[in-house]
Amino acid sequence: MKMQLKTWFSKIIVLATALFAMQSVMAAGSPYELTQQAAEKLFADLKANQAQIKANPDSLRSIVRNDLMPYVHVNYAGSLVLGTYFKSTTPEQREKFFAAFNKFIEQAYAQALTMYTDQDIQVQKEQLNSESQASVLVKLLQKNGQAPLNLNFQWRKNSKTGNWQVYDMTAEGVSMVETKKQEWSSILRKDGIDALTVQVQKAAAVPVTVK
């Protein structure tokens, strides 16, 4: 059961890698259009660099860094993860945490992409919850007749720029932001943000490997 759950989450993270947290530097467009653009760019580069990836899995970091990280809203996602502890931290502490969180996301996404096996996806038109809130349903199509995995990307329109940004993703009802928030809350409560930053830095330094 644990292995099945681990495989399920790995497949979810593969798609989340392509689509999570686009920043406003992307061309203006609807959440649906931005989701399509991100997926097409990433998966095209994965297919084009398979030989290099097999020889050196850590090269996936470069693909993630170039294709995804310029568009990841690291600070906003990180502030949501910190939750109520955000207000008790100094600007300097937050800056160090966000820098570590950036590298952590890069490593985690690169590692997740080693699980990529040319799955197909279907992106549904966005559902507007309000003028500034929207969600995009993405289906990760499984092979062998298995039911698709349903992923919902939560978007909000930046009040200053007018551009749409992803701030969270839920997989079958499980939120990525809430998962990390719960996982790290005990460290923040007991030891503070500096201790969490050190742990995140260590996790970010783990080499990408094919298992």
Results as ranks from 00 to 15, higher is better:
L5V: 04
V123M: 03
W184A: 06
D118L: 10
Q199K: 10
T7H: 11
P57K: 02
L128P: 14
R189F: 10
M176Q: 14
V123G: 09
T170M: 09
A99F: 08
P148S: 11
T209Q: 05
I13Q: 04
S30H: 01
Y71E: 00
E95R: 11
I13K: 07
G29W: 00
K180C: 10
Q201S: 10
F98K: 07
Q124A: 11
Q52G: 02
T209M: 13
V200Y: 00
L137R: 11
S135G: 06
K47R: 08
A108L: 12
P91I: 07
A110C: 01
G78D: 15
G145M: 08
M3P: 01
L149S: 05
A195G: 12
G145C: 15
T17V: 04
R61P: 00
Q37Y: 04
Y109Q: 05
V210M: 12
F101A: 06
K157C: 04
M26N: 07
T161N: 07
V177H: 09
V206S: 13
V25L: 13
Y32L: 03
F97E: 00
M22D: 15
G83A: 09
K54R: 04
H73D: 15
S88P: 07
K96E: 11
L80G: 05
V200C: 04
I187L: 14
V200I: 14
A55Q: 08
S59T: 14
T17L: 01
Q52L: 05
Y116S: 06
A77T: 04
A99S: 14
Q50A: 00
Q124W: 00
K54G: 04
E131I: 02
L19F: 00
K47L: 13
K125S: 09
I105V: 11
A204N: 06
L188N: 01
N66L: 10
D118T: 09
Y167L: 15
A99K: 08
Q133G: 06
V198I: 14
Q127W: 02
G83Q: 12
A147V: 14
T7S: 13
A28S: 05
M3L: 10
Y32R: 02
L151E: 12
A55K: 08
Q36R: 08
A44M: 03
V208G: 04
Q142C: 08
R156F: 14
Q119M: 13
S185R: 06
I121F: 07
M169A: 13
Q165R: 06
R61N: 03
I53A: 02
F43R: 02
M115H: 13
